[in-house]
Simulated assay, not measured.
Amino acid sequence: MEDKKKLPLEGLRVIDASTVLAGPMLATYLGDFGAEVIKVEHPAGDPLRNAGSHKDGESLEWKLVSRNKKPITLNFSTPKGQELFHQLAETADIVITNFRPQTLAKWNITYESLAKNNPGLILVKVSGFGEDGPYKERPGFGTLAEAMSGFAQVNGFPDRGPVLPSFALADYATAMMGAYATMVAVYERDHSEDGKGQSIDLPIYEALMGMLGNQVMEYDQLGVIPGRKGNRTGWTAPRNLYETQDGKWLAISGTSPAIVERIFKAIGREELLADPKFATNQARLQHADELEAIIADWMKQFPQEEILERFIRFEATIAPVYNVKEIMEDPHFIHRNNIVEVPDAHFGKVKMLNAAPKLSRTPGEIRHAGLELGSSNEAVYEELGLTPAEIEELRNGGII
Rank of each mutant, 00 (worst) to 15 (best):
M352V: 03
A89H: 01
K196W: 01
I259G: 05
E112N: 10
E329L: 14
G247H: 05
E83T: 07
E90K: 14
R313I: 03
T182Y: 01
P47A: 12
A356D: 02
E218Y: 00
A207V: 08
N118V: 09
K5H: 09
L250P: 14
L60V: 08
A170H: 08
M209T: 07
D246I: 04
T78R: 09
R336C: 03
L30T: 07
E243S: 10
I307H: 04
V224D: 02
E341Q: 13
A22C: 07
E261Q: 10
A181T: 04
V186P: 06
P119I: 01
P24H: 11
M352G: 07
S18D: 05
F76E: 04
I38L: 14
G197R: 06
L359K: 03
L12A: 02
P79V: 06
A89R: 08
D171W: 02
I263C: 10
L74W: 02
K6F: 00
A181V: 03
L114G: 06
T387S: 15
T73R: 04
L386S: 10
L202S: 11
H191W: 03
P71M: 06
S66R: 00
D16Q: 10
M328L: 15
M209A: 15
A22E: 00
F167Y: 12
A185F: 02
G128K: 11
H368E: 05
A105V: 10
N75F: 01
K4D: 03
K325T: 01
A27C: 12
A44Y: 03
G120C: 11
E341R: 12
Y172W: 10
L12V: 13
K55M: 12
K80V: 01
G31L: 09
A389C: 01
G195S: 12
G195W: 05
G156P: 07
R313M: 12
T182L: 04
A207P: 05
E392I: 03
K5R: 13
E290V: 08
S256F: 02
E315P: 07
E218I: 08
